[in-house]
Design a protein around this nucleic acid. Sequence first.
DNA 1: AACACGTGGAC
DNA 2: TGTCCAAGTGT
Length: 363
Amino acid sequence: MTSTTLDAPSATPILDWYDRHHRDLPWRVSPPMAARGVRADPYRVWLSEVMLQQTTVQAVKPYFANFLARWPTVRDLAEAPNDDVMAAWAGLGYYARARNLKKCAEAVATQHDGVFPDTEDGLKSLPGIGDYTAAALAAIAFNRQAAVMDGNVERVISRLYAISTPLPAGKTLMKQKVALLTPADRPGDFAQAMMDLGATICTPKRPACSLCPFRGSCEALRLHDPEQFPVKAAKKERPVRRGAAFVAVTADGEILLRRRIASGLLGGMTEVPTTAWTSRADGETSADAAPFPAQWEPCGSVTHVFTHFELRLSIYRAAIPSRIQHDDKWWEPVTNLEAQALPTIMKKAIATAIPRVFAMPKG
DNA sequence: AACACGTGGAC
DNA sequence: TGTCCAAGTGT
């Protein structure tokens, strides 16, 4: 522990650690099974990896179970209606992932005979599969010696070698180090071990270095300051945008919905009518901007934090005596909202206007 | 390279 | 309370 010389890092200690301390996850094959030659189902690995992009394991678990139950194979997903997939993804965020998930399933089904390519290059050519997911799939599902680099591995590697080049520029050197460390034997277990280590031991704050299989090799630990790694570029400030959202309700208990355009923020998802969301001080936040005249009543506001801006929506509600038909909108029974592709911000808006239609613990 | 792109949990 | 962050990808 207090030695001044470090052992050369090697894959062996972390593979041994993984054998004893790996997490059991629904999309995984356990190390003993993997040792007997059992391979993870590429469809499940792919589905989990896409869901896990910038998303916690806890958030993914119920979505993964639901997707797998509804669409057990990549062909099933390829044949599913887009709206069903987007509705099933609703709440998980980063909706381009769901759009690309569907495109990828269709490509695998129609261009690859329903079988995922088994090389990094082949995988990376598919929608929604980038450097990380291609390497992870190649290693975990196809036992290829691919260098897997995600946020966990960045943290482990940057500490192990005390790499002070800020991210994202430092990623190039980190990937070289991972490639040198990745074993020809058990590359999939190695990748998962590095991610488990980053998630449970080599954590962003207060890492449990005394339990780490790399404790005799870690330069950051030798420097007594693992938390300083990885160094990251400064973040930009998050501007505030404002707008208004309009919840029209009929006496029959239907609300007016519309579809967002297929690309961009919340692309392809369902929403209640809103004004444009603007950072301007004179932004439209009043009932004057409603989609049609009615007795709009203010019923509160909703704040929602996106990655690159904060949104404050003024919420208005109107009881509509008779259904007014609109070209680009439709009326949906409030009892059927769970089946809609409503992102969380829209569930918050509706819950503010019509309490009790959603169980919304936060907001 | 830099930015767009969601959400909820932890501290 | 604000800040950070969680198995990134596309442009």
